[in-house]
C-alpha cells in the first residue's frame, strides 16, 4: 500500500541495474588501488632502494646487501640501536607497572579530584608531542635533574642514557598503558571478582587469580604499544636528551641532514620490520586470548 509498485521488470531495467553495479564495483576498485598505492608505494620504494647497488635512492642499479652491512658496521648507528632498545625496554617496564596501577586506581576507586586525575591521563595522548617535549625540557632544567646519564653496560654496549629521556618516555607511555588497560578493565565483568571472593578468596588472591589473568591481554597490549611508541619516538627524545645522546630515529635525523643514502633506507627498513613484528605479535596475542574476551591493543 505504501511502497510504490515496482515498474514491470524490463530488459532495460535489468541492464541498467547491471551497469550501475558494474560502475560501482569498478570505481570502488580503482579508488581502493589508488588509496593503497598512496599509502604503501613510498614504503615499498624505501625498502627496494635499501638494496640498491649505488648511492642513488632514485635510480636502480642492481641488488646488494651492502647497505645493511654498512649499517651494522657503523658504530654510531649500532650505539643508537642499543640506546633505543634499552630506553624502550626500561620505559616500557616502568610504564606498564605504573599504567596498570593507575588504571586499577581510576577504574576501581573513588577519590577526591578523580576527574582531574582522570583527564590528566589523557593529556599526553591529546597534546602535541612538541608541547609535551618542551614542558618536559623546562621541567628538567628547572628541577635540576638536567641530563644526568645512567651509565650502564647493556649486552656489551656501554650506554649513557639520560634519566630525563627515560622519565620522558615513561611519562607518555604510562598514559597509553593506563588507557589500554582501563579499556580492558571496564569490559571486565565485576561479578567475576565477586565470585572469587564468594569462593573464599581474599583481596590479594582475587587480584592474583582472577583480576590479573583477565587483565593480562590488556597489559601485554599496553606494553607492546608502549614499546613501539618508545622505539618510534623522535620529538620527546630529541628535546629531553641533551647533546650527544642518540636513539635510532634521532640518529637517522642527524644522518639525513648530510644527505639521504641507501643506508638510511636500510635503517628505516629495519625499524619497519621491528614495528611490524610487534604488531603481528600483538594481533596473535589478542587472537589467542579468544574472540569473546578480545583485546583492543590500539593503533
Amino acid at each position: 500500500m505504501s511502497a510504490p509498485m515496482p515498474p514491470p521488470t524490463t530488459l532495460e531495467h535489468a541492464r541498467w541495474e547491471r551497469f550501475k553495479s558494474k560502475l560501482g564495483g569498478w570505481s570502488l576498485t580503482t579508488y581502493g588501488i589508488l588509496a593503497f598505492a598512496f599509502l604503501y608505494l613510498p614504503i615499498v620504494i624505501l625498502v627496494i632502494f635499501s638494496f640498491n647497488d649505488s648511492r642513488s635512492v632514485s635510480k636502480w642499479s642492481g641488488f646488494t646487501w651492502a647497505w645493511y652491512g654498512k649499517m651494522f658496521q657503523d658504530g654510531q648507528i649500532m650505539l643508537s640501536i642499543w640506546n633505543s632498545l634499552f630506553l624502550a625496554i626500561v620505559s616500557t617496564i616502568i610504564a606498564t607497572v605504573l599504567g596498570t596501577l593507575a588504571a586499577l586506581g581510576l577504574e576501581r576507586y573513588r577519590f577526591r579530584g578523580k576527574t582531574a586525575v582522570d583527564s590528566m591521563f589523557y593529556l599526553p595522548v591529546i597534546i602535541p608531542d612538541i608541547a609535551m617535549a618542551i614542558m618536559l625540557l623546562i621541567f628538567f632544567n628547572m628541577s635540576g635533574i638536567g641530563f644526568t646519564p645512567w651509565k650502564v653496560n647493556f649486552f656489551g654496549a656501554r650506554l649513557a642514557v639520560p634519566y630525563s629521556v627515560i622519565i620522558g618516555h615513561v611519562a607518555f607511555n604510562t598514559s597509553f598503558v593506563a588507557i589500554v588497560v582501563r579499556a580492558r578493565l571496564a569490559q571486565m565483568d565485576r561479578t567475576l571478582e565477586e565470585a572469587a571472593s564468594d569462593l573464599y578468596a581474599n583481596a590479594w588472591q582475587t587480584f592474583r587469580r582472577v583480576t590479573l589473568p583477565m587483565l593480562m591481554p590488556g597489559i601485554i597490549g599496553g606494553a607492546l604499544l608502549a614499546f613501539t611508541l618508545s622505539l618510534d619516538d623522535f620529538v620527546i627524545t630529541f628535546f629531553t636528551s641533551g647533546a650527544g645522546f642518540n636513539t635510532l630515529p634521532v640518529r637517522v635525523f642527524g644522518m639525513i641532514k648530510k644527505g639521504v643514502t641507501p643506508k638510511i633506507n636500510a635503517v628505516s627498513t629495519l625499524m619497519l620490520v621491528v614495528s611490524l613484528s610487534l604488531v603481528v605479535v600483538s594481533i596473535l596475542i589478542s587472537m589467542r586470548s579468544g574472540s569473546e574476551d578480545s583485546v583492543t591493543i590500539g593503533m
Binding site: 567475576l192 564468594d198 569462593l199
Partner: peptide
C-alpha cells in the same frame, strides 16, 4: 554461603 550468579560468573581463563 555460596552464590550462583545470574550470569554464572564462571572464570573464563
Amino acid at each position: 554461603v555460596n552464590t550462583v550468579f545470574q550470569n554464572y560468573a564462571l572464570f573464563p581463563h
